[in-house]
Design a protein around this nucleic acid. Structure first.
Lengths: 144, 144
DNA sequence: GTTAGACTTAGAACCAGTCTAAGTTTACAA
DNA sequence: TTGTAAACTTAGACTGGTTCTAAGTCTAAC
């Protein structure tokens, strides 16, 4: 890769700074996913990255998502029993989840004040707190 | 069923009062699951209900869990990407989730104070708020 | 005892996600 | 450059939780 593509270089640097070797496939995925906060499933990403005929395999999509999560570039969001969503917004925040459309929306951490958490044994440390606010279109009351 | 089994009758009444016809299989499952607050997966329940040779099919276990959730007798807990957990504690509460053992523990709702939720459009109503506190044994720092 | 509707069942099917084994790329030293 | 080992990517097989299907069972009402 001789040409100097600014966006690609930025993604490469981000990957390197997180201990991820920036292969062509990882950079392609990174450009789609790390450029701005986004919610997506593995399948959505697989389709998106292959739309332009880029040709990244399913295995690599899953491998890359797992690696990005491990290296702190993405987080998983568990709201749908049938599949995992990923979130490229790494700032502390929570989620609205529309139970009917499956849409996710961010809630800034500052908008939810969580009081003192219950004491845990000293043997445990808190790794994170996930808050999901399940919402539904109110005028569905009459709908089936 | 002519004999008067108190526990069975109690479960039957609970099912009826929630609009669920108390078949033999549903009562068997209900006795295992509704008697006290419990966390379990579909597979754990399937094994438990068949331990005594009771013979309830996998399909019925899944059907019954779905029905119990729909009728407000159980709730789903989404903490493990690979499978759904169920919770028969219907009082408002949240969860500790040990990311290493997969164990779940309840946190009473009164132990977590959530401040004002962000305003949503009037078109939406809040269906519920799920809080998961992910914990890890602290002395795992040196372990791989 | 017939009928209808609801329920249960075994096993097939589904599908998100993982694994395997072979090929490709990368890093790096000489 | 060339050689090499380690890391990465891939197609496709596989896994395992969950759902579907179609046939059989139960129960209540007639």
């Amino acid at each position: 890769m001789q040409h100097s593509d600014c966006q690609t270089d930025t993604v490469s640097q981000t990957l390197r700074s997180h201990g991820v070797i920036p292969t062509a496939q990882r950079v392609r995925i990174g450009r789609l996913v790390l450029a701005r906060p986004a919610h997506f499933s593995a399948e959505q990403l697989y389709e998106q990255v292959n739309e332009s005929g880029a040709g990244v395999s399913k295995a690599t999509v899953y491998n890359t998502l797992g690696l990005f999560v491990e290296k702190g570039l993405l987080r998983q969001v568990l709201v749908d029993p049938s599949k995992v969503f990923y979130d490229s917004n790494m700032a502390p925040h929570h989620h609205f989840y529309d139970v009917e459309t499956g849409e996710l929306a961010d809630i800034d951490a500052s908008e939810i004040q969580i009081g003192a958490l219950p004491e845990t044994s000293d043997d445990f440390e808190i790794e994170g707190v996930d808050v999901v606010v399940r919402i539904r279109r109110a005028d569905d009351r009459q709908a089936g």
